[in-house]
Design a protein around this nucleic acid. Structure first.
Lengths: 332, 332
DNA sequence: CTCGCTCGTGTAAGCGCTTACATAGTTCGG
DNA sequence: CCGAACTATGTAAGCGCTTACACGAGCGAG
């Protein structure tokens, strides 16, 4: 913190009182010429108001806290971008913390953030139990839930339609003639819902559900799951609940002597950039991450205005690619 | 912001003055029993000090600002983790902003962050010109530079030894019998230094430099660069300055009918997780991202203590994988 | 014993803003 | 031409902390 130029110096230089400077700066009632003069002087002096003083005086920090599960995920980066964009328009900023997918740490991070003067908290893909959250609820500021459950928390929820997207992904495989379709599932809400979508698509098409293995949303988990699947056989296509797991599955299938896109069709989920460069390019469902972030920010701002914004459900766009091929018969 | 419990209420409840409460909380001179009582009462009341008031009173925010080039990069996520870890130990926190690799936006972000009461600013991989930065220097708080140039800025610099790492990568290829080695280069300081390392390794081995094409550190850029290289021919191995570009190169080579690890050896840079799952697994140099972050945070704290920390140069670890193969002769 | 310390605590003055309230100057209907 | 109703601005009281300074009590040295 360099030497601060305070509102007093601006007031002196402009020949008015600090109250007038404050009003000129914040859109209060001031004579147009006075405002112009104050603004010019402030500019000349390089005045920039002390956020701390402002927070103290107004009781509002114009900042919200965001908790993400993992600082290294590109999806979260995009959500943050969306949040930042939306918030900036309202003159708000945000503080991020990562829970590292550790519920204990998440609770700490929540407390920490709310002790830091944030007006609202956006929880993204949080893994904290709803009971635990409910319990902390009253010591926390306003909440907005992104991609996490919490119907009982009476906080706006922003989600993507995982069920529909899972169904869409599976239908894509079905449309390509596959009838024996496996699933590499993910954990938590998102994983369960995508699984449900897979189930529904199969049911709708009158197909028997194929094998399901859990992969924890990581490359390593996807690899292990696909190794297992490959050993079991009985499918010609697989819906993998995340692109990262799909990457692991690619390797597992390769090692099992199965050519993705030939012997086995694969569709992932998320729409991460690397998918387009794989061999074969990975079909996937693109998550509207940035829009999710924007919607979350909008909801947070609405809550702060005292409104009760509706829940938002966004849908994913399918990205067809060569990893899914029309089946000619055959299979495993 | 829920109803605040202030220091006054704690003072009342504990039967002491606010000064005593403040001292008890911050390690001032207080009788041990008084301190114990104050702490207990504060705990009972759920007191948590207002950071705004504290900042206003002390003039120090215990927060530093961090500017990253891109919110979606896993490497930056790791650096932030390192920064957070180190800072937490000193009771500091940090605010992040992403410049989106836009110098204009970077300048805005810097101003914005410094207007937000940060005591220091850590610039990671910043693309802002040194002159521009020097010009803003005086309106900014203390600076720490990570992976960016700025020798003239008299700010501690934390970098990885790109030259050595580039040399190591190239030597790895040479050790596998390659003599005609191309390079897909990256932009900015990091790109130039890795290129320099490549050059040196070749010079040391008495080899002619192969073709060099710039790829902008993205998958798409790496793809384009490799398409170009494949058309030119004249090499059996290529050092690609980033894993993401290497991914693009994989596809380009594939499309050109070249098998990576057979017809052409590839070594990347960064050590991103996905590399292990590619076909063939991508040899690379692992960046000590988290350590970089920790070192940066340590440097920032040191500067705030009025010290003049030395520059830190970290080195990368080589990760040998199947994308680099012993050459049997042949080549293109 | 008394003087001068040290210790523990309290008093009060800010830190840089915002804003309710007061005041002086204008404007205008009747 | 007077008072009501504005308008533009100033005065001052906080917001919740920290901290310099003051003060009384207890204590060892002379």
């Amino acid at each position: 913190m360099r030497k601060r130029v305070t509102i007093y110096e601006v007031a002196d230089a402009a020949g008015v009182s600090v109250a007038t400077v404050s009003r000129a700066l914040n859109g209060g009632r001031v004579a147009p010429q006075t405002r112009a003069r104050v603004l010019r002087v402030a500019e000349e002096l390089g005045f920039s108001p002390s956020p701390a003083a402002r927070v103290l005086a107004t009781g509002k920090s114009r900042a919200i806290g965001v908790v993400i599960p993992d600082a290294t995920g590109p999806l979260y980066g995009r959500m943050l971008r969306g949040i930042g964009l939306e918030l900036a328009q309202a003159g708000y900023t945000y503080l991020v913390e990562s829970s590292e997918r550790d519920p204990g740490r998440e609770a700490r991070v929540l407390r920490d953030l709310s002790a830091r003067d944030v007006e609202a908290l956006v929880l993204i893909g949080s893994g904290l139990g709803s009971e635990a959250l409910a319990e902390m609820r009253r010591e926390l500021p306003e909440l907005v839930l992104v991609e996490r459950e919490g119907a009982a928390l009476e906080a706006p929820m922003i989600t993507i339609d995982n069920v529909a997207a899972g169904e869409r992904a599976t239908r894509h495989l079905i449309e390509h003639g596959h009838t024996r379709i496996a699933h590499v599932a993910g954990p938590r809400r998102a994983g369960r819902e995508r699984l449900e979508g897979w189930r529904r698509a199969l049911a709708t098409a009158g197909l028997e559900p194929g094998p399901v293995v859990e992969g924890g949303f990581t490359e390593a988990g996807g690899y292990r799951a696909a190794v297992e699947l490959a050993a079991m056989g009985g499918f010609t296509a697989v819906f993998v609940a995340s692109d990262r797991m799909a990457l692991g599955a690619y390797r597992a299938f390769r090692e099992a002597g199965l050519r993705v896109g030939e012997d086995v069709s694969v569709i992932g989920f998320d729409g991460l950039e690397f998918g387009a460069y794989l061999d074969p390019p990975l079909a996937t469902l693109r998550q509207p991450a940035q829009q999710l972030g924007q919607a979350a920010a909008r909801a947070a701002l609405a809550v702060l205005r005292g409104e009760h914004p509706e829940n938002v459900v966004l849908s994913c766009e399918i990205v067809p690619r060569a990893s899914v091929r029309k089946i000619g018969g055959g299979g495993l």
